[in-house]
């Protein structure tokens, strides 16, 4: 690890020059610390570009990126689309309505069809855990997981880490509290993996009914009392209550949930003074987060997260395109 770039804000040409060694980006769990920081360092140089008048590069000119979304998405899909376009790639959006019949078979059939079109990058979101990995075994191009079921959402974790880093410097040693519906959250799984990899102390807060069995073995500390879990946190990351993924009652009501697990100014005061608030969106206001917190520009990083998302995805596209270019043709 001697050669790893020391974290913090810096646009490190030497880091960028080091080739990203993964063919796909399927899960944070597949990355080591060096690879994760490689991606974050790459994003450093794209972030300032977002505020420039002409926002286009030709790094990916002639390459094709396909956005394959089996689940509806606004921000992730448009973020990847913008990232691809700014890198000069040709972007095709395919919105595939999830059909109720034989999803596994449909997915593989779709993969074969797409593969025949010879894309270079395939961004996929699917409601089933493991779908991105299955696809990656059936196509020749690089696959980026844009969210698979309740498994992982690696670019969200990367943009979250990048947002924290850009605001607080080094992630090492920070205390990050991830609160809410951990059970149904791929964002939580990716973030626990990435933030612990980068040396943060991660806490998971939520009712036991929304905490997966064995979560205490992820390297994070589990709290059911939100106030205890928020104490001295540097960053509070709220999760979206995934009501669309719930079958039956995991908690009694929205009002009770908000009372015990909703982030309002009162609870935020327990965290470290100046603690920052994040949310992957879309928010359930008045359920997991109070508007007075979400809309407070002094504490809320929620808009910054969206902005940084494009830079991070540009970095991921660049890294995978380089990696793919240097690999043996399939």
């Amino acid at each position: 690890m001697a050669q790893r770039p020391t974290g913090g804000k810096k646009s490190d040409q030497s880091a960028r020059a080091i080739r990203f060694r993964q063919k796909h980006l399927l899960a944070i769990a597949d990355l080591d610390r060096f690879e994760a920081e490689n991606l974050l360092d790459r994003a450093e140089k794209f972030a300032p570009m977002l505020d420039e008048k002409i926002k286009k590069l030709d790094t990916l000119r002639g390459r094709t990126l396909i956005n394959l979304f089996f689940e509806n998405s606004t921000r992730t899909q448009s973020s990847f689309e913008l990232a691809g376009k700014r890198m000069g790639a040709d972007v095709v959006n395919m919105s595939v309505k999830s059909s109720s019949v034989a999803k596994g078979e449909t997915l593989i059939d779709t993969a074969a069809t797409l593969n025949a079109m010879r894309p270079d990058l395939l961004v996929v979101r699917h409601g089933s855990s493991g779908a991105a990995e299955l696809l990656s075994r059936k196509v020749d191009c690089a696959v980026i997981n844009a969210g698979d079921g309740k498994h992982e959402h690696p670019t969200q974790a990367l943009l979250d880490a990048f947002t924290i880093r850009s605001r607080l410097g080094d992630i090492e040693g920070l205390t990050v509290a991830i609160c809410g519906d951990v059970l149904h959250s791929r964002v939580a799984r990716s973030n626990v993996a990435l933030l612990t990899l980068l040396g943060a102390q991660v806490r998971l807060i939520g009712p036991p009914t929304l905490m997966p069995a064995g979560a205490e073995k992820w390297g994070a500390k589990v709290f059911h009392d939100m106030r205890a879990g928020l104490k001295d946190a540097d960053v509070v990351m709220m999760l979206r209550l995934q009501r669309e993924r719930m079958d039956g009652g995991f908690f009694p009501s929205a009002r009770e949930y908000f009372w015990f697990y909703g982030l309002d100014e009162d609870k935020l005061r327990i965290a470290k003074p100046g603690a920052l608030v994040m949310h992957p969106g879309p928010m359930n206001r008045g359920v997991e987060i109070d508007s007075s917190v979400a809309d407070n520009p002094n504490v809320s990083l929620i808009e910054t997260q969206v902005r940084m998302g494009v830079a991070v995805r540009m970095a991921v596209l660049e890294a995978l395109a380089e990696s793919g270019a240097n690999q043996e043709p399939a």
Binding site: G248, G249, F251, P252, R255, E256, W259
Partner: peptide, 9 residues
């Protein structure tokens, strides 16, 4: 017997 009540409140 279906959905739990507001046990906390």
């Amino acid at each position: 017997g279906e959905l739990m009540t507001e046990i906390g409140l």
